[in-house]
């Protein structure tokens, strides 16, 4: 009987088509994302965030906020609406199931060191290495491209990211107190965390 079971298993393995990188519904729905965010959400650009490894619930909140205009973005509002149309659950599951490869954009070591010191004020929310808090939807900053991180800090400072949202009041208060150079240092540090 055991040999029969083995034979069945071998035959099943031989006939099963192994899942390719485009075989999940989320992968196919994510095809438009790769133009900016890279294949499998691994952005190689400085200003485009890496989507691979984003927690599904965080991804869905970001898409909903972009689509509603709460998080204003010329680029993301139409694509967020398309993501909702295609099925945001599939997209969130797809990106959430991928491992984030940290950005390959290297920062100056001195800037990283200064940023590590400056990051003390971020620890209470984002954690000691910027890994965030999934339950509170505080994002994991580690390894995101520095240009993207700095742009978000500027948007918070200028109250152009989620304007009027009390949830992000504290981060905006901190950003208003930071110099442009410190923001660059923080971006360098968090992008370098491995």
């Amino acid at each position: 009987m055991r040999w029969l079971m083995s034979l069945v298993l071998v035959l099943a393995a031989a006939t099963a088509v192994s899942a390719g990188p485009l075989d999940s519904p989320g992968a196919m729905k994510a095809l438009n994302c790769s133009a900016c965010h890279g294949f499998a959400g691994q952005s190689s650009g400085d200003t485009m965030p890496i989507l691979a490894g984003l927690w599904p619930e965080y991804f869905k909140k970001a898409v909903a906020d972009y689509a509603s205009g709460k998080r204003p973005s010329t680029e993301m509002e139409p694509y967020a609406k398309q993501a909702m149309q295609f099925g945001v659950d599939d997209l969130a599951a797809y990106f959430g199931g991928l491992k984030r490869e940290p950005t390959k954009i290297a920062s100056d070591a001195a800037a990283v060191a200064r940023g590590r010191t400056a990051a003390q004020q971020c620890v209470s929310c984002h954690g000691p290495e910027g890994r965030g808090d999934r339950a509170k939807l505080i994002p994991d900053l580690a390894g995101q491209p520095p240009g993207y991180l700095k742009n978000q800090m500027i948007l918070f400072r200028d109250d152009r990211r989620s304007p009027g949202d009390d949830m992000v009041k504290s981060v905006k208060t901190i950003m208003k107190s930071l110099s442009d150079a410190t923001m660059s240092d923080l971006a360098a540090y968090y992008s370098s965390v491995r």
Binding site: S34, A35, C36, H37, G38, F39, S43, S44, G45, D46, T47, M48, E75, P145, G147, Y148, N151
Partner: peptide
């Protein structure tokens, strides 16, 4: 700057 990020990603 966004356009530079777009270009880098889409060429890739």
């Amino acid at each position: 700057q966004n356009s530079l990020g777009w270009a880098q990603s889409i060429w890739n």
